[in-house]
């Protein structure tokens, strides 16, 4: 099962390597990991997407809680939540492809944020499936570069992760 684990962690040097080191040392899987400081600059919020059985995810949560720098851990996928990922795709946009690319980007509510004679950079936000669908919808041979942030997530409604 795919799980989205959200972590509040002390914003100190080395905190990220404690988390990533834990995953590699215990052979846990990381699909994606994002991290940035929160509104309180002493805290960072990290979102990790991992795939594992319930037992493995339970261990991951416990092991993360055991790290001294970790303040809070929550498995977002246990309840209603929103997840988003940002993708920038640089595509070849010449001739008839130029118009088609613009159209597909519009359908996916993407924005073209860089234009040259021969390329576009498309900015797209959404859940992982939507970004994958966009890549499937365009001609693969036109993709020059993709960069994705990985998933960040937040609980819906009253579900709040804070100190």
């Amino acid at each position: 099962m795919r799980h989205i684990i959200s972590i509040l962690i002390e914003n100190e040097s080395g905190a990220l390597s404690r988390v990533s080191g834990l995953f590699s040392a215990r052979a846990y899987n990381i699909e994606s990991l994002t991290v940035a400081p929160t509104e309180d600059s002493s805290l960072s919020r990290m979102t990790i997407v991992s795939i594992g059985s319930d037992e493995v995810i339970e261990q991951i949560t416990k092991q993360l809680n055991k790290l001294i720098d970790v303040v809070k851990v929550v498995d977002l996928s246990e309840a209603a939540h929103i997840e988003r990922e940002l993708m920038l795709v640089k595509v070849r946009a010449t001739g008839k492809d130029r118009e088609e690319m613009k159209r597909v980007a519009d359908i996916f509510r993407g924005r073209i944020i860089d234009v040259t004679e021969s390329t576009y950079v498309v900015e797209l936000t959404g859940n992982t499936a939507k970004l994958d669908a966009f890549l499937d919808a365009i001609d693969r041979s036109l993709i020059l570069e993709t960069v994705r942030t990985g998933v960040c997530g937040i609980g819906r409604g009253d579900r709040i992760l804070r100190v």
Partner: peptide, 11 residues
């Protein structure tokens, strides 16, 4: 005392 020792190898 360590929650991660519980249900690690045996339920």
């Amino acid at each position: 005392i360590d929650p991660s020792s519980i249900s690690k190898r045996v339920k």
